[in-house]
Design a protein around this nucleic acid. Structure first.
Length: 424
RNA sequence: GUGAGCGUAGCUCAGUCCGGUUAGAGCACUGGGUUGUGGCCCCAGUGGCCGGGGGUUCAAAUCCCCCCGCUCACCCCA
């Protein structure tokens, strides 16, 4: 039979990698709770309309979703990001009527139908936080600090925080008009992609990588010159606050967002260990989205961390994640009878909370010890024919090489043996 | 959707340019040296549709064409 392999862009997360995911989520949750965030869980799929309405018109986001009709003919999409579902839950449960501030975090897989590349998969994991009901710039500061300190605390030494403000709807609109007036004069110089962007998403031209486009952008109008006084004040407080907290950051006037629900503060944290997709964390303020999804006007801020990118960066940075769990006891068996006996003994030992691995093959003892050694077992319990006859088994310490006989009854207090012997 | 690179043992790779005995190495695995005692060492062994199909040729891992897969970049980026 031909082998079936996994679909494009997804991956199996095996041991020990799966335990790294667990550890990252656990540490994130603990850390975020210091700021008052509580974990919630929302569905991995929603009505397609939710995502379409949240992103607005002007992108081909719709094309990059896993969308299908369910058996009732409803259009459903696997979530491409976390925010929309959280906002939907916020509105649906009328949280705004119950809590002034709703601070939540979530973790789980997201799905986007895109061509895979470094740091980009079709199923990937994110850990995100959202805070609703707070418009203070100090929240932006706090949330950026939280993301920054979490990543630093994980051991990521090479991150860079970039912030920008894209203003509110009004000032952004004015800015885009001015930008178009300016860029319109250089249309023939811009790259072909930017000529296309000019029509449907001119802001995106700001982070074009082409040298000629960058040159044109040198003298382009900047958003800061168009932000209204309240947006400007907001942004000044954000950057001032970051300085006060000594969070190293750069203001990147070319940092933009493709979606129109973002307002004011946006930020990214990039890692130099990553490839072309180098943001390990991205977030910002979205004061219009709750209303856009049927709730009352409610300011909100959030961010999401890409777990794969974080993990990759941590590996590059040489950070050790969770050590392999203590391995317990390897049971060496010789022959069928011995396995039979071993299974009963194993059950007694496991009932004391000690892990046991039993050899079920007919390999020689030598090879079994080699395996135990390779798999980092500290202890081997040898159960051979002779031992069964005597009712005494051999317990060997793999570090010291010392071994002793222990009797069947003594398995009841087996853990004492493991602790008792030195050099374990 | 576009472009480039890659695909040989479980893993990492050599061999491909310039076609020519039975396709190699290291690691891993199994056995032996040591009849039931690991790590180091030595010896031996298992393991390959050389990604798939077609073509050229006396002869193809090697040259040509098509397909598939992976990777990176572009696009897009919530």
């Amino acid at each position: 039979m031909a082998m079936i392999n996994a679909p494009k862009g997804v991956e199996d997360i095996l041991f020990p990698r799966a335990s790294y995911y667990e550890e990252i989520e656990k540490k994130a949750g603990n850390f975020f709770s210091l700021y008052g965030y509580k974990k919630i869980m929302v569905p991995t799929f929603e009505k397609t309309e939710l995502f379409l309405r949240s992103v607005g018109q002007e992108t081909d986001v719709g094309k990059q979703m896993y969308t299908f009709k369910d058996k009732g003919g409803r259009s459903i999409s696997l979530r491409p990001e976390g925010t929309a579902g959280i906002v939907r839950a916020y509105v649906e449960h009328k949280i705004y009527a119950k809590e002034k501030n709703w601070k939540v975090y979530y973790a789980g897989p997201m799905f986007r139908y895109e061509r895979p590349q470094a740091g980009r998969l079709r199923e990937f994991y994110q850990i995100g936080v959202e805070c609703f009901g707070e418009e203070s710039p100090w929240l932006d500061v706090e949330i950026i600090e939280m993301a920054h300190d979490f990543l630093k605390g994980m051991g990521l030494d090479n991150i860079q925080v970039q912030v920008n403000s894209i203003g509110c709807k009004k000032c952004r609109y004015k800015y885009i008009e001015e930008l178009k007036v300016y860029l319109g004069k250089y249309l023939d110089v811009l790259c072909s992609t930017c000529r296309r962007r000019f029509r449907y998403n001119p802001l995106r031209i700001l982070d074009c990588k082409s040298a000629t486009c960058r040159a044109v952008l040198e003298k382009a109008p900047r958003i800061q010159d168009f932000t209204c006084s309240s947006c400007q004040e907001h942004f000044d407080k954000v950057t001032g606050g970051l300085c006060r907290l000594k969070i190293a950051h750069t203001i990147n006037p070319y940092l933009v967002r493709g979606l129109d629900y973002y307002t004011r503060t946006i930020f990214e944290i990039i890692s130099s260990y990553l490839g072309s997709q180098d943001a390990v964390c991205a977030g910002g303020r979205y004061d219009n989205l709750v209303e856009q999804l049927g709730g009352p006007p409610t300011p909100a801020t959030g961010f999401a961390i890409g777990v794969e990118r974080l993990l990759f960066s941590l590996e590059k940075a040489g950070v050790d994640l969770s050590k392999p769990a203590p391995q317990g006891v390897f049971m060496a068996t010789i022959g069928e009878k011995s396995v039979e006996e071993a299974i009963q003994v194993a059950s007694i030992i496991r009932s004391q909370g000690i892990a046991v691995k039993i050899n079920l093959t007919n390999k020689g003892l030598s090879s079994q010890l080699k395996q135990a050694n390779r798999e980092n077992f500290s202890w081997v319990l040898i159960i051979g024919e002779g031992e069964i006859r005597k009712g005494k088994f051999i317990l060997k310490n793999m570090h010291s090489g010392m071994q002793q006989e222990i009797e069947t009854e003594e398995f009841e207090v087996f853990s004492n043996f493991l602790k008792g012997d030195a050099s374990s």
